[in-house]
């Protein structure tokens, strides 16, 4: 079920002193089973864009098609759309409200018309799939740690069985371990459920590790839409937008300039490590000879 944006523009407070052109002529197509990263600094329009995907915001001009249908068409059911295109916002505190986690996660499915009995299995499945421990199911959502709240909030959207799951900064405020856990879980979800994941993040490192397509937003426009390593090769332009490529990209470029034949496509620690080792062997580096016992 692809999403398509055709010439989508959005203006906040049009014709006033506070007018902001948040999106300018966006053209995009999101295919099934993709794992997409969206990056851009605050105010770049990325949050506005994702809220267009599930009809929380109506574009000022242009059309958005879901599965070929205009989602702002006359008889289009936008509530059904919202359960097919799930959006989990950045702050779990903005959605958790029930007495216990399980009931909270049932909220979405029950809004879809399921009874509590029918909703509960969906909720349980979703909670387990995001790595939420069963022993905490009946805890109050307000007693949870930051990471657990985040999981409960994502499960709250996942339980509605969306075909596309949009995650706005799922790792903000989490510590490194919590961050890696949750991203691993999301990556697994993508393959287990076969759904499309759109990950909005500030972290280039996370995007490089998990996604296969990266959309860079700046001043309401899509500036890059390509494989992450291709986007990172424009690291100088990214810096001008207040963004930065992963540290590894800078290192690889620096090494290449100094004559080490490394692969510039490497944008994760694992890839870089492999490529550097290979390059060091090619140039017969003294660094390997002295201590290279188990290579």
């Amino acid at each position: 079920m692809p999403i398509e944006c055709k010439d989508v523009s959005f203006t906040y407070a049009p014709a006033t002193a506070y007018e902001i052109h948040a999106l300018k002529n966006i053209n995009l197509r999101i295919e099934d089973h993709e794992f997409i990263g969206i990056i851009g600094h605050t105010g770049s329009g990325k949050s506005t864009l994702i809220q267009h995907f599930n009809a929380l915001i109506q574009p000022t001009s242009g059309t958005i098609l879901y599965n070929g249908e205009d989602i702002w068409g006359q008889n289009y059911n936008r509530r059904t759309l919202r359960s097919e295109v799930g959006l989990a916002f950045q702050y779990p505190e903005h959605q958790l409200f029930e007495n216990d986690v399980l009931s909270d996660v049932c909220f979405g499915p029950m809004n879809q018309g399921l009874t509590r009995e029918e909703a509960e299995p969906e909720a349980r499945k979703a909670l387990l799939q995001v790595g939420f421990k069963e022993k905490n199911f009946l805890k109050s959502p307000f007693e949870l740690s930051g990471g657990q709240k985040k999981r409960a909030a994502i499960a709250g959207v996942l339980a509605m069985n969306p075909k596309i799951l949009i995650l706005d900064e799922p790792t903000a405020g989490l510590d490194p371990r919590g961050r890696d856990n949750i991203l691993d879980q999301i990556a697994e979800l993508q393959s287990v459920r076969g759904i499309t994941i759109i990950l909005v993040s500030h972290s280039m490192e996370d995007i490089a590790k998990y996604t296969r397509r990266l959309i860079v937003m700046n001043q309401g426009e899509v500036v890059y839409d390509d494989a992450p390593h291709e986007v990172f090769s424009h690291y100088e332009e990214l810096e001008k937008m207040g963004l930065a490529a992963p540290q590894v990209t800078y290192l690889m470029n620096g090494l290449k300039k100094r004559g080490l034949p490394v692969d510039l496509k490497a944008d994760t620690v694992a890839e870089a490590s492999k490529s550097i080792l290979k390059a060091l062997r090619e140039v017969d580096s003294p660094l390997l000879k002295e201590g290279g016992s188990h290579v």
Binding site: Q51, R79, Y91, H94, Q95, L96, F97, V157
Partner: peptide, 30 residues
């Protein structure tokens, strides 16, 4: 909060007065 709950299928518009008040709970608690 309204947007987050709308994304989960909450409905803040339709229904009679009692239903409307009940529908406000997911907004008011957070």
């Amino acid at each position: 909060i309204m947007k987050a709950q709308t994304a989960r299928g909450a409905d803040f518009e339709s229904g009679g007065i009692i239903k409307k008040v009940r529908n406000m709970i997911p907004l008011l608690v957070p």
